[in-house]
Structures are given as C-alpha cells and as structure tokens.
C-alpha cells in the first residue's frame, strides 16, 4: 500500500473497538442502555444521563448530508493533493452526526439532505476511515 501522508486518526483504548470494526468495514456507534440514546464520538459514559451503561452497536451506515463544503484552497498541506475534496457532516439514521468526506461522486454533485451510505477507505494496512458515498433514496 502506498505511503499514507495525511494524518492518521489517534486510536485510544476508548476508540479501539470503533477502529477494530472499521477494519472489517463495520460502523459502530455507542448506545446508552439506560436512556436509549445513541452516542458519537465514543465517550467514557453517556453524555445525556451520565450512565456507564454504554454498549457498542452496529449502525445502519445510512444517513444524509446535513451540510457540506468543497475545499478548493488553503487546506492543511498534506490535503493539497486531494483538492478539490468534500468535507461534510452526515446525520446517521440513528441521529448522531459524523464529520466525514463524501466520496465516489463528483464534488459538485454533493447537496444538503442528500442520502448517503458509509464507504470505508483502507488508508493503511490496519486502519480504515469511514467516509460516505451517495445512495439511492
């Protein structure tokens, strides 16, 4: 695999289950067994009810673009080769927001509320990043 020069996600004991699943192209988020709310980013305890009773669940991987931008200049150096690229907030069907990139389409075709689904990118032999691509509504 070609050397990946962009920043790698910092994997911590807390986020390890997320990235372990990502390697298998599964998107995990947390869910609180006490208040039933979904949680993302991974947290030590539920930010809604402060319960320790969080479990990892597999997300549908489906959602829609809440908002997006197309970066065209003045980006961190190692992203310059990717220009133009799309940065977006995706709202998963479970309700949580994720910051991500929209891939597998022309950047000019990205729109607010566009239906998308997760598309993992294997950036190294051991790390995959969840990104999103358009899907039929």
């Amino acid at each position: 695999m070609a050397e990946y020069k962009k920043p790698l996600p910092q994997i911590t004991p807390l986020s390890e289950p997320f990235y372990k699943a990502a390697r298998e192209h599964k998107l995990l988020i947390q869910k609180c067994k006490d208040c039933s709310k979904y949680v993302f980013y991974p947290k030590h305890f539920c930010p809604h009810c402060l319960s320790d009773n969080l479990e990892w669940v597999q997300s549908s991987g489906k959602g829609k673009v809440y908002s997006y931008t197309v970066c065209r200049s003045n980006v961190p150096a190692n992203f310059a080769a990717d220009l133009p690229y799309s940065v977006a907030i995706v709202e998963l069907d479970e309700g949580v927001w994720m910051l991500t990139n929209i891939v597998d389409c022309n950047v000019d075709d990205v729109k607010c509320d566009m239906p998308v689904e997760v598309a993992f990118e294997d950036i190294t032999d051991t790390i995959a990043l969840p990104k999103f691509k358009p899907r039929a509504a």
Partner: peptide
C-alpha cells in the same frame, strides 16, 4: 481522532 483526518480547518 475524529475531525482532522478528514481535512477540515477553521474556514471549512
């Protein structure tokens, strides 16, 4: 962990 890998900065 969750944002910088996607190339966001304060303008974006």
């Amino acid at each position: 962990e969750w944002e910088y890998p996607y190339g966001m900065n304060s303008d974006s």
